[in-house]
């Protein structure tokens, strides 16, 4: 390894997720692709929306109001922030997992980019930026729906947006890092195996207190739980210093994921 190679992944971190000038070209490419495939991009937003409507219409009365830190919260208002967090996560993961694998192994888009002045760091950073953009778009749209439905009651709720971007960065970075280790499409079954239980059990649909003590402890370790807690705190205006732990957890995921991705993409593409 030359000194140059070790220095590059570290450069990702202080730059944050704004991207280098060259990595923005990678983002631009994705924008072009989705100009003709916009229906895929737009339709991704509807899934959490349908969930919210279904819950609001069908389950809200059956479950009844829940007690969150001493205040009664309508069930739909309880679930809405977790769906926002989930949509930020899914938005980031779409391109960070399947699509990135497709580009790495099948369409060889990255090989083409490397024949130009772009280098592997630009590719990794550009794709991560795009994942954050996509996750952020979904979260913002969902936030507007929540506002229209009357679930946004305080200015503090605006903090949902940076929280969603952080979640998108965390899941995007880790998703990309995991993708660089995938050998075939079959391996993605494992991703589903991790995501579905997480979606179902991370206090997304009911308070974590439903579980016995040991299971609560396990659930609290999952990244989606951290994101959901953060989003719910922002939406309901329950801001505690303890939420900083969730922020730190997600930020650590983003940084570690980005560093591993940078290294692996370099290894895979420059052979």
């Amino acid at each position: 390894m030359t000194p140059n190679q070790t220095a590059v992944p570290l450069r990702i971190v202080p730059l944050g997720f704004l991207g280098t000038r060259r990595s923005l070209r990678v983002v631009e490419r994705n924008v072009f692709v989705y100009r003709s495939g916009w229906i895929i991009l737009v339709s991704g937003f509807f899934e959490p929306l349908f969930y919210l409507l279904s819950i609001g219409l069908g389950l809200n009365h059956l479950v009844g109001p829940l007690d969150v830190e001493g205040t009664k919260v309508a069930y739909t208002a309880f679930v809405a922030p977790s769906l926002l967090a989930t949509s930020a996560m899914n938005g980031a993961l779409f391109d960070a997992t399947y699509n990135m694998f497709f580009k790495l192994k099948i369409s060889k888009v990255y090989d083409t980019m490397l024949a130009t002045p772009l280098d592997p760091t630009d590719v990794a950073l550009g794709e991560l930026t795009w994942s954050v953009v996509r996750g952020g778009l979904y979260a913002t749209a969902f936030f507007l729906v929540m506002a229209v439905m009357g679930f946004v009651t305080s200015w503090w709720s605006l903090l949902l947006l940076p929280a969603a971007l952080l979640m998108a960065a965390a899941f995007g970075a880790v998703g990309m890092a995991v993708t660089t280790f995938m050998r075939s499409w079959q391996d993605f079954d494992l991703v589903g195996l991790a995501l579905i239980p997480m979606f179902l059990f991370s206090a997304t649909f009911y308070p974590v207190t439903v579980y016995p003590g040991w299971l609560q402890a396990v659930v609290k370790l999952t990244p989606l739980y951290q994101g959901v807690v953060l989003a719910r705190g922002m939406a309901l205006g329950h801001l505690h210093p303890v939420l900083l732990l969730s922020v730190a957890y997600l930020a650590a995921m983003a940084i570690v994921g980005a560093i591993i991705t940078g290294r692996r993409v370099r290894q895979l593409l420059l052979s």
Binding site: L59, G64, D189, F205, Y206, V210
Partner: peptide
């Protein structure tokens, strides 16, 4: 295994977990 795990997970999370709230309330 997916055909087996999917019902296990959904029934546990929604049927038992969410179900406990619904049975209690309604």
């Amino acid at each position: 295994s997916a055909s087996f795990l999917f019902p296990v997970l959904y029934l546990a999370a929604m049927g038992v977990g969410l179900g406990s709230l619904i049975d209690h309330h309604a």
